[in-house]
């Protein structure tokens, strides 16, 4: 069970992780993109961080929706509308709820991925954040359905996301700026998949400490 306070805690940690990895993500993006992913993610999540104190006591839907709107307006790059849509779609699932249970979490994750697919018109294997998110979702769902708790499920999810990031090194980018590079994009990991992995890892790290 994730309470709305825990959700705020997760988001706060996400903002810290994005700041810590600002240089790293930008460096990855410099190799196959437009060198702004870390800067953009930090910009967006720093703005989210400023809003968090005003969200104390709010329901999970409101929290996720606010995060979405801030990311959409502050990020600047493709990750703004993509992560923004992901948060926006997942917000609808937990509207008015003060807690996110296992089944809710599966639905939140599922809607987030549908949002990214819809906005980015991408699929698994295109060398995008979906290559981290989709395998993570699959093991997360399986774990919860097998009766495992959220800590275990989120651990498995971030592990699968990590493997997904590794997989992006082997494939050609078919979406975004990196697609201009064609075969030359092979050998480099996708920055978007990497930030998705870092965000999922933050969920696990936060839940593990509770």
């Amino acid at each position: 069970m994730i309470t709305s306070d825990m959700l705020l805690n997760i988001i706060e940690n996400m903002a810290h992780v994005m700041k810590e990895n600002k240089g790293y993500l930008t460096e990855l993006d410099a190799k196959i993109g437009d060198s702004d992913h870390g800067i953009n993610m930090d910009k967006g999540f720093s703005a989210v961080l400023e809003k968090l104190s005003s969200l104390k006591g709010q329901d999970c839907g409101t929290i996720l929706k606010t995060v979405a709107m801030v990311l959409i307006s502050k990020v600047g790059g493709a990750s703004g509308p993509l992560y923004g849509t992901a948060f926006l779609k997942s917000a609808a699932v937990v509207k008015d709820k003060m807690e996110i249970g296992g089944q809710d979490a599966i639905a939140v994750f599922d809607e987030a991925i549908k949002g990214v697919k819809m906005r980015g018109k991408a699929e698994k294997g295109d060398k995008t954040m979906l290559d981290a998110l989709i395998p993570a979702y699959e093991v997360f769902k399986e774990s919860i359905e097998n009766g495992e708790d959220m800590v275990k499920a989120s651990f498995k999810a971030q592990e699968a996301a990590y493997n997904g990031v590794e997989y992006t090194k082997e494939i050609i980018a078919r979406k975004g700026r990196a697609s201009y590079l064609g075969e030359r994009s092979i050998g480099y990991q996708d920055p978007g998949a990497t930030s998705s992995y870092l965000l999922l890892k933050t969920i696990w790290c936060t839940l593990d400490k509770v």
Binding site: I72, S73, K74, G77
Partner: peptide, 12 residues
């Protein structure tokens, strides 16, 4: 551009 003058786009 973005609202703070960076390279990028802004849906709003």
């Amino acid at each position: 551009g973005t609202e703070d003058g960076r390279i990028g786009t802004d849906a709003f």
